[in-house]
Computed example of a mutant assay.
Amino acid sequence: MSTLKGKVAVVTGASRGGGRGIALALGEAGATVYVTGRSTKNQATTDNLPGTIDETAESVTLRGGVGIPVRCDHTIDAEVEALFTKVKTEQGHLDLLVNNAWGGYENYYGTNFEDGVAFDAPFWEHSLQRWQTMFNAGVRAQLLTTRFAIPLMLPQNQGLIVCTTAWDRNKYLGNLYYDLAKNAVNRMAFGMARELEKYNIAAIALAPGFMRTERVMAAYNLQPFDLSNSESPEYIGRAIVALASDPDIMSKSGQVLAVGNLAWDYGFADIDGNQPPAFKIE
């Protein structure tokens, strides 16, 4: 269904994982999607994982949309500014921004980082570099990207900003740096919603469940684990298509939403026809 035909979207961190799944779902809905990330064809990819912005953009087009790859490091101000200058020049406006680029997972394999520290180890055992990466390539990158995106939404007095996050009813996420960073993203979406309300621009934090990303599957291939409660990266993409198609989206602005709950609310399913419930921490 071309429910988003004519709409222009930017999806950050879309070489692989959730970003790729989001871009593909938007393409299937007919949108023009600017696919950003650092992994490009003919070059080494992040942690040598499969997936590039070029491949994602090609798949977006094959799905029925228009995929446009733009290499962008979202920690570098000038590159982010250049991205939105390109969007403005080529499209004149922006309807949807999905802040998905994130740092902090680098060199994490199976259950440990390469230095042998487990993700859920006490905070004093983790390198402060994890904090730096999560807040610089995560929280700041999302704020920076939104800052340059907003001027393309203001003239049309409408738009949607989605910040991907991790969340389960405000439960602790098991890693202090990660918990602080993700809660900062949630609060950022809330604050953005307050300031953008008068411009009819919605801001939402959206939490997927346990996604079968390339990184997760690489870990699974090293040591199999239970995937029965997992979901495809396109499940969150279908949630975003539903949100972007909702004429009453402003009623959800400022909230932290879960993909599994939205599946029930909007009536969409994952690619296998199932509706995985919202992720819950035991």
Rank of each mutant, 00 (worst) to 15 (best):
Lys280Phe: 01
Gly6Met: 05
Gln129Asn: 05
Tyr34Gln: 10
Leu62Arg: 14
Glu81Asn: 09
Gly237Val: 12
Glu114Gln: 03
Val216Leu: 14
Glu90His: 07
Lys198Val: 05
Thr89Asn: 14
Ser15Glu: 06
Gly116Tyr: 02
Asp120Trp: 00
Pro233Ala: 09
Trp102Glu: 13
Ile249Val: 15
Asn261Lys: 15
Asn107Ile: 00
Leu94Val: 03
Ala239Asp: 06
Gly67Phe: 01
Ala207Gly: 01
Gly37Glu: 14
Ala14Asp: 12
Asp270Phe: 10
Asn274Ala: 15
Tyr34Cys: 04
Met217Pro: 01
Ser228Gly: 13
Met188Thr: 12
Ala29Asp: 11
Gly104Trp: 10
Ser251Glu: 09
Gln142Leu: 14
Thr165Gly: 12
Tyr34Asn: 10
Asn100Arg: 14
Arg140Tyr: 14
Ser2Asp: 13
Ile150Thr: 03
Ser245Glu: 09
Glu90Tyr: 04
Leu243Glu: 03
Val259Thr: 14
Ala184Pro: 11
Tyr220Ala: 09
Val259His: 06
Thr133Asn: 08
Asp246Tyr: 07
Ser39Glu: 01
Tyr220Ile: 03
Glu234His: 04
Ser2Ala: 10
Glu79His: 07
Ala78Thr: 12
Leu196Asn: 02
Asn48Phe: 08
Met217Phe: 07
Leu62Trp: 02
Thr56Lys: 06
Ala166Ser: 15
Lys5Gly: 00
Val66Ile: 03
Ala218Thr: 11
Pro122Ser: 02
Ala101Phe: 13
Lys88Trp: 13
Asp73Cys: 07
Met153Gln: 09
Phe123Ile: 10
Thr46Leu: 13
His126Asn: 04
Ala9Cys: 01
Arg38Gly: 08
Ala193Lys: 01
Asp95Lys: 15
Asn112Leu: 00
Ala181Phe: 09
Thr45Ile: 05
Glu81Ser: 07
Val70Ala: 10
Ala203Asp: 12
Glu197Trp: 08
Leu222Arg: 10
Glu125Arg: 05
His93Glu: 14
Val87Ala: 05
Tyr109Asn: 13
Arg130His: 02
Gly67Arg: 08
Arg38Asn: 11
Cys163Val: 07
Leu257Cys: 06
Met250Gln: 05
Thr12Glu: 14
Thr75Gln: 13
Gly260Ala: 02
Trp131Val: 00
Ala141Ile: 09
Glu114Pro: 02
Lys88Glu: 05
Ser15Asp: 07
Val35His: 05
Gly159Asp: 11
Asp246Trp: 11
Lys198Asp: 03
Leu222Cys: 06
Gln223His: 12
Leu176Gln: 00
Gly67Leu: 01
Gln156Tyr: 06
Gln255His: 09
Gly21Val: 09
Leu26Lys: 11
Ala23Tyr: 04
Ala242Lys: 08
Asp54Tyr: 09
Glu195Lys: 06
Tyr34Leu: 04
Val256Gly: 02
Arg169Ala: 11
Asp179Gly: 01
Phe123Val: 10
Glu28Lys: 14
Trp102Asp: 06
Tyr172His: 12
Ala203Gly: 01
Glu214Leu: 13
Thr111Pro: 00
Leu227Asp: 13
Asn261Val: 05
Thr40Pro: 02
